[in-house]
Design a protein around this nucleic acid. Structure first.
Lengths: 167, 167
DNA sequence: CCTTAACTTCACAAATTTGTGAAACAAGCG
DNA sequence: CGCTTGTTTCACAAATTTGTGAAGTTAAGG
């Protein structure tokens, strides 16, 4: 396609929009409601990583009300934060740049709830029954994963650091 | 025909039911529809790890039709398999004992789709724009995780092996 | 074959979720 | 002080999802 040789490739609005929808679709498959997913994706591709209700609403062709609802959800999940820009009545929602995927993956509280449910089940069927053994193995798996996830995130921070310095 | 062991702790039906609901709730939060989640949980706690439509329907107080629909979903997700028991018209749905959580976590196809969506986005905003950099870092994260997950599952198999032998 | 048991499919009613317009609310600006 | 712009809340209509009863399908057992 026609691109000027300034070195800075220009934004392709249609492509951006396709990305937003595709990325949001992944989030939806992972269990996030539709609007929050789209808003989050839109924030991710914005150059500033932040934007207001009106701005997002226009980009996604949804009402400001829908944006507001979506942001409330994202805020509760700690996926965005709200900032008040001093000289303006515009509120800005910001995606935490390098931390959002940690929020998505590490959430140890989630793993804990799986573990709690499993322990409850083991108690109810008896640990030595076949079912008890199966649940016990699953519990062991979650306990294992819990530790490993920590390790992964540590290694990732190192990895990212290196990558960042090289550039 | 169940053999009642002398020292076997007895099943607590109410506790089992509570487990099924709690565990299913976790699955739902992770994005699984309600009925499939309940059916899956019910299979997990059953001593045989398998059961038929009628049996499951009675345990969960839902119609055979609902069970059927749930199983179709679980089958598509490769979370259960169907077996035909030779001398009977009873079909049995079975949970893959020690492999189901691998299906839940490892699914590399899922990670690939995230990566594809991100690459698309990076192309659309330009890799050197601020947004491009943010997406690039996210992509790097997913690539990193993809490799790490492999490692985790390998280490888990070793870990499980040890645990199993010790018992 | 004809009956019967087990499961599946289908059409639909009920329940839930979604997104909107309208009104309320806040906060800078004149 | 109001006016004006940007955001949130609320009630509700539309759309989607869910689970059921009833009819359909397959295969065992007489």
């Amino acid at each position: 396609m026609a691109k000027e040789g300034t070195g800075q490739p220009e934004r392709d609005p249609e492509g951006v929009s396709r990305f937003v929808e595709h990325f949001a679709a992944q989030l939806v498959m992972a269990g996030m409601p539709r609007m929050p997913a789209r808003v989050f994706a839109a924030l991710l591709v914005s150059d500033t990583g932040a934007g207001g209700s009106a701005e997002l609403g226009e980009a996604l062709r949804i009402s400001p009300a829908a944006v507001s609802g979506a942001v409330r959800y994202l805020d509760q999940q700690h996926l965005v934060s709200r900032e008040r820009e001093p000289g303006s009545r515009r509120e800005r929602y910001r995606v935490h740049g390098d931390q959002w995927y940690e929020a998505l993956t590490s959430r140890e509280a989630v793993i804990r709830r799986w573990q709690d449910a499993l322990r409850e089940g083991i108690a109810s069927v008896g640990p030595d029954s076949p079912a008890g053994r199966r649940l016990g193995e699953t519990l062991a798996f979650f306990e294992f994963v819990e530790k490993e996830v920590e390790g992964i995130m540590d290694r990732w921070r190192v990895h990212r650091e290196e990558r960042f310095e090289r550039e």
